[in-house]
Simulated assay, not measured.
Amino acid sequence: MITQSGNTFKYVVVIGVSTGGPQTLKELFSNLPKELPLTYVVVQHMPEGYIPNMAHRINQISSLTIKTAVNGDILRQGEVYISPGGHQCQIINAAIPTIKITTAAHYKGYRPSVNLLFSSLAKLNINSIGIVLTGMGQDGLDGVQDLRNTNKSTIIVQDQASSVVYGMPRAIYDAKLHDHIVSINEMSNLIKKLVR
């Protein structure tokens, strides 16, 4: 249980997504209530400038607070922080989990990188849920391995039928690093079950 500024959450949820992400995130976040003891950090592969509009659109249909992550943001329950395009996003400080945004180099071709986000959370060794959604390539594979090594993370991947591109989820599935594989329609219910 992490408490700061009167705010309590039990898990940090990290999400990696690429092709098909905006609609997929909209589907997920429209079905998750604010009172769950969760805070969320998302890497969506997009160039600079696109994330604020996407965050605004999803915010309009979600009970969660959806925003573009800013360097120094302290994670709070019921809030979703989406990495700005063209930047790396990491989580630092286990006692008060905080967003770190940098212009560090591309990692394995990506900025933002799902791997860097997931691996940064693994270093904090706190309770987490790692989710890999639709997208091309294998970004997230290294980071999921790091999360699994902590024994404090549950890994969920989107199934092939509901993915626009079954690349990133397939990489996790093929490596047998997942705990659950579900459609995007079922994912919010699974998350609720895991934390209640």
Rank of each mutant, 00 (worst) to 15 (best):
V12R: 06
S162F: 01
N53F: 10
Y107M: 02
Q88W: 00
V157A: 07
Y40S: 06
L124N: 06
Q160T: 00
I172A: 10
I99C: 05
T150I: 04
M54R: 11
V114Q: 06
N189A: 13
Q88G: 11
E48L: 00
M46L: 13
M46C: 02
V165D: 03
M54Q: 08
Y50H: 14
D174V: 02
A105P: 11
R170G: 01
V12I: 15
A105S: 14
T150L: 00
H178G: 04
V17R: 03
G72Y: 12
T98W: 03
I99E: 03
Y173T: 14
Q138P: 01
F29G: 01
L141C: 07
Y40T: 08
Y11W: 13
S18C: 03
S153G: 05
M168Q: 08
E35H: 15
I191S: 08
K152R: 14
H87P: 02
Y166G: 00
V41M: 13
P112N: 11
L36N: 04
T39P: 02
I15V: 12
T150K: 03
L116G: 09
P22V: 04
I131Q: 05
G20L: 00
Y50A: 07
R196Y: 12
K193N: 13
I92G: 11
T103M: 10
V43T: 06
N31K: 10
G16F: 04
L141Q: 07
L116Q: 15
T154N: 09
Q88V: 00
I58C: 06
T154H: 11
A161N: 12
E27Y: 12
Y173K: 15
F118M: 09
P37M: 10
T65E: 13
Y50K: 13
K67T: 08
V12Y: 09
V165R: 09
L124S: 10
G86R: 08
Y166E: 01
E35S: 15
A105M: 12
V70K: 15
N127W: 01
T19H: 07
T19P: 00
Q160K: 12
L133Y: 07
R170D: 03
S18Y: 02
G72M: 08
N53I: 12
L147M: 09
V13Q: 03
S83H: 04
G140D: 05
I61M: 12
I155V: 11
I191W: 02
V144T: 09
V132F: 11
G109Y: 08
N7H: 05
L194D: 05
V70C: 12
A104T: 15
I51D: 05
K34D: 06
G16M: 01
I15G: 05
K176W: 03
I99S: 08
V165M: 05
A122W: 01
E186D: 15
S18M: 00
V41C: 04
A161H: 13
R57W: 00
H106T: 14
A94R: 15
